[in-house]
Design a protein around this nucleic acid. Structure first.
Lengths: 311, 311
DNA sequence: TCATTTATTTGACTTAGTCAAGTATCTGTT
DNA sequence: AACAGATACTTGACTAAGTCAAATAAATGA
């Protein structure tokens, strides 16, 4: 079930403001290209034809939001000028597959270059990190508003990098504050744990896994050595936006696998009973509840639990 | 001096891809509003008139990128329909200031509502955090591409909130890795310091200041109690994008002011000689170099320095 | 004062896009 | 096999939307 949230007025106004802004922005960019023989819509059609194969008129009309009649005439004109070729598909004689001729490609090239140069000039006004932020922000917008085609790789695991622990502290602090009302002392605890982890990190006995999805950190877990026989799993966390992909289970499995190969006898972990989805993962992995006790922390009354897995 | 960076091809392609995507997106949104009596351009003009005062035809043509002739006719039509009033400005009889009449406002209201509802429906498909991310990403794009009108308030100081310390750890870790090649142990050190700060925070004797600019954290500093007489300034930091606004100096001044009112005799701090811009701030504030020593940390050979300010 | 610039208007266009009614072909059902 | 829909385009008949150049009127600067 998807929960729908009443969007606030400020958000709506912000999006509308952006729409007005970008309408103008696109208008400005298009002006520069208006010098050419092609109209804007013609240029859009040529772009699609240059970049995708086996397109039919219907595909173009749908993807570019064009009137079929208008498009039909437009393609006819292109064909007369020798810019495109239409070949009826063998599967369906009503449709024809449209391709650019070499002459069509030649006509598109300066157009394409013009658009490229224009965007290059736009970007050139920004510093490299600003360009990066711009591109990332655009991709975020596109991902959220777009058809959100599932990424080919749902997620990948990688080792810790500079910036990760701060990010994880930030996200966990915010997340548990939002979801459970925990105060800033939880974020501070995470900071202390991770600071100490990196400082005393022993690659032979300890490890961390960061789950990344489309370049964003969406989960993590840390395994630290408590004694020769006991490894402790710490700070398992998965972004709400990336839940349901099995990332949590996978992270726990990686920990257990690592602990096995290193010869640990037990994996232990401490958690709180309110974290139900985490508990389900631990149970599924074979952990047993060893003991629990009431305690007051992070501004709440909580039940702390120790779980163990004998290997 | 601004350094220009040759934008990479992937970045240019990403921006062009976004432009195509958003061209379509705007087209989709506009389709829904096409039912009304007003054309898209008319609606844009009405929007501007409804939201800004004292506009002239030239202003409108410039801001919306319209042909003056076309706009002139459009406004004439509006005037005939009793939607707008034009009053020649007393300063310049060629210009006239255009305002919506009550009838004009009434005509605009359903249009406005339609656009509002459409965006609301678009947002409604997203969860609340996703909506937030969308809005933030749009604001980033707008800020980077826009005329970047200076924000009214260049920055503001506020106390620590949940999520801040993780963010600061994240940014400092990345920043010093990029600028000075420091390794992950610096980030870990920041994490330990801030974790301990929050954990043992004594509001009577200690304080933190977060500098925020347009909703983004762009700087911070922490003042901790070392003894009855000595306060220690820690982790002064300003985002590169927000430098030159005097944020660093302001943060240090706040620390000194706080230390004075609390009756501390000395403010001390530890830094490294490579952090030259920070050092300049300390010198300007009256700090004197007490001693320095070579040390190896964060993967580098460094010169650590202690600075003191007698109050 | 007079040449130039700026703000707006008007006339004469073109183009881009819409809408509805075709034709040809395919698909599923009986 | 036959036929009632769908689909994939095409064509005819429009009109709104936008452009360009020239004109007018007021301001500005030398």
């Amino acid at each position: 079930m998807t929960i729908h949230h009443q969007p606030g007025k400020e958000r709506i106004d912000a999006v509308r403001g952006f729409n007005r802004f970008y309408t103008r922005q696109i208008g400005l960019l298009d002006e520069g290209l208006l010098k050419s023989v092609f109209s804007l819509t013609e240029a859009r059609v040529l772009y699609e034809l240059a970049h995708r194969d086996g397109l039919t008129a219907t595909d173009l009309a749908r993807d570019l939001g064009l009137d079929p009649g208008y498009l039909s005439r437009l393609l006819k004109k292109f064909e007369e000028r020798g810019l495109v070729e239409r070949v009826a598909t063998q599967a369906d004689a009503r449709r024809s597959s449209i391709t650019l001729t070499p002459a069509g490609r030649a006509a598109f090239a300066p157009l394409n270059q013009g658009s490229h140069d224009q965007v290059a000039a736009l970007l050139d006004r920004l510093s490299a990190p600003e360009q990066d932020r711009l591109v990332r922000a655009m991709q975020t917008v596109q991902r959220l508003l777009g058809e959100s085609a599932e990424p080919k790789v749902p997620y990948m695991l990688r080792p810790l990098q500079v910036g990760d622990i701060g990010w994880i502290i930030h996200r966990q602090g915010l997340l548990y504050a939002q979801e459970y009302g925990w105060d800033e002392t939880y974020e501070a605890l995470v900071a202390e744990i991770l600071g100490a982890f990196v400082k005393s990190y022993d690659p032979k006995w300890e490890r961390s896994w960061i789950a990344e999805r489309e370049g964003e950190v969406v989960g993590s877990v840390f395994l630290v050595r408590q004694s020769d026989a006991v490894a402790k799993l710490r700070l398992l966390y998965v972004e709400p936006s990336a839940r349901g992909l099995g990332i949590g289970r996978r992270l726990v499995e990686e920990c257990i696998g690592f602990a096995r190969t290193k010869g640990y006898k037990t994996v232990t972990l401490w958690t709180n009973d309110v974290l139900t989805s985490a508990r389900r993962i631990y149970e599924a992995a074979g952990f047993k509840l060893a003991n629990q006790e009431h305690h007051h922390a992070f501004g709440k009354d909580l039940v702390g639990q120790n779980w163990n897995l004998e290997l």
